[in-house]
């Protein structure tokens, strides 16, 4: 079985986010493998242990992106492709999907996994767009994966509960981090990841022109960043339980008028 995982390197959003003059300040940020993509790696390693598989990572990004690929390799993926090109700086979901479409052209695979969204943009479009470009069936927000009768059995967190969907192969699945708890790469894995194959590809290698990417990029553009408006804290009410409840009921009925 051949599994491809499309991944992204993102700033560690658990850190303090700084924005100055409408720009995101990247200095001092740690960059990590997108957590949803890490869940894809974990899930495919579990499938590999169960059924046997080759797990390949694909990442679009600059030189620093190699570190995210190495993390996936250190977890246990087999090999990696690093798509790096000056024309691909700061591209959005639609352009990224276009690049990946070119990458997958003529390649043989059973399914593609990718995070349900990237932690930096939280857009959640690239996976589904790529599927449509490749004319593949897809499902998003998977919380569980298994195989049965040559089909992928996907458990998806839907509006009404967990939906069970059978997907033919090849297909594409976007994964939630509720799917699993990704393994921490061991130091042995980190050292071994240096020796695993990592191939670098440019746009020209993919047979794609910068204009074709630009066409997708131009559909929408990122203008600036800002900090969300702070929500003001209101009154802290202290005292014994009776006082608390009496004060709250008074406030909710008379002041906020929500009860």
């Amino acid at each position: 079985m051949k599994i491809f995982i499309c991944c992204k390197q993102v700033p560690d959003v658990a850190m303090t986010i700084q924005i100055k003059d409408g720009k995101f300040i990247s200095e001092g940020m740690n960059y990590v493998l997108n957590a949803y993509d890490a869940s894809c790696v974990e899930e495919s390693l579990v499938l590999k242990e169960k059924y046997g598989a080759e797990v390949t990572l694909v990442l679009i990004g600059d030189e620093a992106g190699k570190e995210a690929l190495r993390k996936g390799l250190a977890m246990g993926a087999d090999n990696a492709f690093h798509i790096m090109d000056p024309a691909l700086n700061q591209i959005g979901s639609q352009a990224a999907a276009k690049v990946l479409q070119a990458f997958f052209k003529g390649r043989d695979f059973d399914f593609i996994l990718t995070g349900k969204q990237a932690q930096d943009s939280d857009m959640g479009l690239a996976g589904g767009i790529l599927s449509e470009m490749l004319n593949l069936p897809y499902v998003t927000n998977a919380v569980g994966l298994d195989m049965a009768d040559n089909k992928v059995v996907v458990r998806r967190q839907g509006d009404e509960g967990v939906e069970v969907i059978h997907m033919p192969m090849p297909s594409l699945i976007t994964c939630s981090n509720d799917m699993n708890d990704p393994r921490i790469p061991s130091l042995k894995g980190i050292m071994a990841s240096k020796k695993k194959p990592m191939e670098q590809l440019s746009l020209a290698d993919l047979g794609l022109s910068a204009d074709e990417v630009l066409r997708e990029s131009k559909k929408s553009s990122l203008k600036s960043f800002s900090l969300p408006p702070a929500r003001k804290s209101g009154a802290k009410i202290e005292g014994d339980a009776q006082t608390l409840v009496a004060t709250l009921m008074e406030k909710l009925t008379k002041e906020a008028k929500v009860l």
């Binding site: 570190e67 190495r70 993390k71 250190a74 921490i184």
Partner: peptide, 17 residues
């Protein structure tokens, strides 16, 4: 270097978790 950054991530994840 990359080895050291990855080591840092692993140690941090272990410690946080």
């Amino acid at each position: 270097n990359q080895d050291q950054k990855l080591m840092q991530q692993s140690a941090r994840e272990f410690a946080e978790k």
